[in-house]
């Protein structure tokens, strides 16, 4: 306990700054997931509080992406339950997760390759669009008005991410770093209450990483969006996270503030490869 207090104190100010971190909005209880006998996650429990930046770290193959996939319903765990906004269920389904305000990005960029940046980000608004097929076919009145109204929102996202100059470019032609940014834009366009980011900085240079960190912090700060982040760059994780959960071989080996986690012998062992 003393160590913890010291650690927090030593840092001077916590990364949370003056942000309000609220009650638990997502609670994962005893999640186990396996694929045809191969265990990906074993009995994992942790929670996410409103407004915090929660990181998941761990070596390759630790089950980090699987964890995100459980949260928004792409994978269905065999055991455990997911409690989101007080509603307890066995598993999520992706559509429902989206409707309840969970958006995400993927480890391997999952943009729609054949579409422009603008159209990609517009897809993020799809749940908020109400006009139907026949109105679209006519493209008159309500459909046109709706299109313009959402275009305005999307342009705000484009301004926020500073990608104005590429809005009409097909995403396939963009460099990797920009694609990652567009993917973040698509997630933001949905105005999510919770954002799941799967290695948003993988393969980026220092400058791009700084930009991305800034965007993440700004999103969290300006919109109060809760963020669950998977990232390999320890410097970034320790800098921007409020709390960190550590996975190894599908098991949780550490959970707490960055300082607590850094001091955890199991975590150190996992990262340095010491057997335990």
């Amino acid at each position: 306990m003393i160590v913890n207090e010291l650690a927090v104190g030593a840092q001077g100010q916590s990364p949370a700054g003056g942000r309000p971190i609220g009650e638990v909005i997502l609670d994962l209880q005893n999640i186990s997931l396996s694929f045809g006998g191969v265990k990906a996650l074993t009995d994992i429990s942790f929670n996410v509080r409103k407004g915090e930046i929660r990181s998941i770290i761990g070596p390759n193959g630790a089950g980090k992406s699987s964890m995100l996939n459980v949260i928004n319903g792409v994978y269905h765990p065999q055991q455990g339950s997911v409690i989101f906004h007080g509603e307890k269920r066995r598993d999520m389904d992706p559509h429902k997760a989206a409707a309840q305000g969970i958006a995400r990005t993927f480890q391997n960029i999952a943009l729609f390759k054949g579409m422009s940046v603008l159209d990609n980000i517009m897809t993020g608004r799809i749940l908020k669009m109400k006009t139907n097929l026949l109105q679209h076919a006519l493209f008159w009145g309500a459909a046109q008005r709706e299109e313009i109204e959402h275009r305005k929102k999307v342009e705000e996202v484009i301004d926020f991410l500073e990608i104005q100059s590429i809005r009409k470019t097909p995403v396939g032609r963009l460099p990797y770093g920009l694609q990652k940014r567009v993917e973040l834009g698509r997630a933001l366009a949905a105005e999510p209450s919770m954002l799941l980011l799967d290695e948003p900085m993988a393969g980026m240079n220092v400058e791009e990483k700084q930009d991305m960190s800034r965007f993440i912090l700004d999103v969290n700060d300006q919109f109060g969006t809760t963020i669950v982040l998977i990232e390999h760059d320890m410097g970034v994780v320790m800098d921007i996270s409020d709390r960190v959960v550590v996975l190894d071989y599908g098991k949780k080996i550490g959970d707490g503030t960055p300082e607590e986690v850094m001091a955890n012998p199991d975590v150190i062992a996992a990262y340095l490869g010491t057997s335990h």
Binding site: P94, A98, A103, A110, L111, F112, G114, D119, M122, A190
Partner: peptide, 17 residues
């Protein structure tokens, strides 16, 4: 856009809603 999203990457499309 929904058609093209499903064409290009159906898992991502589902996650968007």
């Amino acid at each position: 856009r929904a058609w093209m999203a499903v064409r290009d990457m159906d898992v991502a499309a589902e996650v968007i809603g």
